[in-house]
Simulated assay, not measured.
Amino acid sequence: MEGFRLGFRKVVHGDGRAMGATLFAIGTAGVPMGRLGAADDGLRLVELDPMLIRTTQTTVKQQGATIPALVESMKRNGFVVEPDRLIDVVRMPDGVLTSLDNTRILAAQRAGVNIQARVFEHTDLLPDDLDYVSRFIGRKGEIPVTFGDAVANRISNQNSLFRTVYPYGSPYIGSAH
């Protein structure tokens, strides 16, 4: 790999207990390129600053806890990894990360806490999981094959201004709360 340096990040459980250090490759723009060492979580999670992650939708949809309640929880407990609701981010062709999961990104931004996420390249194939893939069907019925396709389809389902201005995702996200 060219244009990278190595760095260590402390990996913690949602309750703040240390899991150990993880070796990362840091891209020339300072964005983690993925974990090189193994943490004992087995989930291949990378700690990321949510302020550096673009989003694929104009707003967040309320699912479960309200945004203010989620923010308060993150302020008290930090970011809690939920194995059945992992955050997936995609390194797009411009090298910047874009999230496929926006609600907890917004809450973490507001709480001022880092997130734990899985990082995929835009060329990586999506899992063979119909429930997962069905979240990213395009506005004209396009079935995504790669994580980059999933980002493109999610963005294609937004209004034309968003699609035009933010073809790889937006640095801004809104909510009604």
Score class of each variant (00 low, 15 high):
D94P: 04
L43M: 14
G37P: 01
R110C: 07
L100Q: 06
F24L: 15
V31R: 08
Q63G: 14
G20N: 08
M92H: 06
I26R: 02
M92V: 12
N77W: 12
T98F: 02
N114I: 03
T103H: 06
G27H: 09
P83H: 09
G30D: 09
L48C: 12
P32D: 02
V46N: 00
L106N: 04
N77C: 12
K75M: 15
R35H: 03
V80S: 06
T103Y: 01
K61H: 12
T66C: 09
V96P: 01
A21I: 05
Q57D: 14
G20Y: 06
T103V: 11
P83I: 12
A108T: 05
L70P: 00
L43Y: 13
A25H: 02
G112N: 08
E72F: 13
I67K: 11
V60G: 00
V90M: 07
L48K: 03
D49F: 02
V46Q: 00
A117Y: 00
V60C: 02
M33S: 07
L36Q: 10
A107I: 08
I67M: 14
R110S: 00
T103D: 04
M19A: 12
R76Q: 15
L23H: 02
G64I: 13
G42Q: 09
L100S: 10
G34A: 03
A29W: 05
M51N: 12
T22E: 04
F24N: 04
D84F: 01
L43N: 10
I26K: 01
V89N: 01
V81R: 09
V81F: 07
E82I: 12
G20K: 06
I53T: 08
Q109Y: 00
R44E: 15
A69D: 14
L23M: 02
A29Q: 11
G42K: 02
K75H: 12
G37M: 00
L43C: 08
R85P: 00
R104F: 09
A38F: 10
N77G: 15
I53Q: 10
V31H: 09
R44F: 09
V60N: 04
R110M: 14
S99V: 01
T56P: 01
G30R: 07
D40K: 15
L23G: 01
G95F: 11
G78Q: 13
D15V: 11
D49R: 11
L36P: 05
G112E: 09
V96C: 06
L100H: 10
D41H: 01
S73E: 06
S73P: 00
